Simulated assay, not measured.
Amino acid sequence: MKCLRVYATEDGETHFDEVDIPTVARQVHPEAAIFDVSARYASTHISFTRIPAGAGLVDWHTVPRRSLTVRLSGSAEYQTSDGDRRHVPTGGFILFEDTHGKGHRTLHSPEEQTVIWISLPQGLDRA
């Protein structure tokens, strides 16, 4: 399973990458189909955010801590300092690790949005 990632290099530039989240096929219930399930990852806290309709552009910023966000509604376009842009639709998720440097820009879709923020003490590539 792939997860979009934003990270900063030592020189402060931000970039996109993908983290491969390994999964194994597992029978989670005798009457259910086989699921692909990842390892468990530690988190320090979770929060829910309602972004109002018309929020628009949030200019260059970093995140206060490594966070995995899950978009329950709405979408956003993200831009890193190297000029790359990526669209994350409803249901998409992205790992933010740009806690320093130039950060990223976020352009929110026009409608109200709901996003879950999960703080991770380590990245998804390190269980």
Rank of each mutant, 00 (worst) to 15 (best):
M1V: 13
M1P: 09
C3N: 06
L4M: 00
E10A: 13
E10Q: 13
E10D: 15
E10C: 01
D11S: 09
F16R: 01
D17H: 07
D17T: 03
V19I: 15
D20S: 08
T23H: 07
V24Y: 04
V24R: 15
V28T: 14
A32H: 09
F35P: 05
V37E: 14
R40T: 07
Y41M: 00
S43F: 04
T44K: 11
H45D: 13
S47L: 12
T49C: 06
P52S: 11
A53T: 08
A53Y: 00
G54K: 08
G56T: 01
G56V: 04
L57N: 06
V58H: 05
V58I: 06
W60K: 07
W60F: 01
H61M: 02
H61A: 01
R66I: 12
S67G: 04
S67Q: 15
S67C: 11
L68T: 05
V70W: 12
R71S: 06
R71W: 14
S75K: 00
A76Y: 00
T80L: 00
T80A: 04
D82K: 13
G83L: 02
R85M: 00
R85S: 05
H87D: 03
H87N: 11
G91E: 05
G91K: 01
G92T: 06
G92N: 11
G92Y: 01
G92S: 08
F93C: 11
L95C: 03
L95F: 12
F96M: 02
D98G: 03
T99E: 05
H100F: 10
R105S: 05
R105L: 08
T106M: 07
L107I: 07
L107E: 12
H108Y: 14
T114C: 07
I118Y: 02
I118C: 08
I118Q: 02
S119W: 07
S119K: 06
S119F: 10
G123F: 06
D125Y: 10
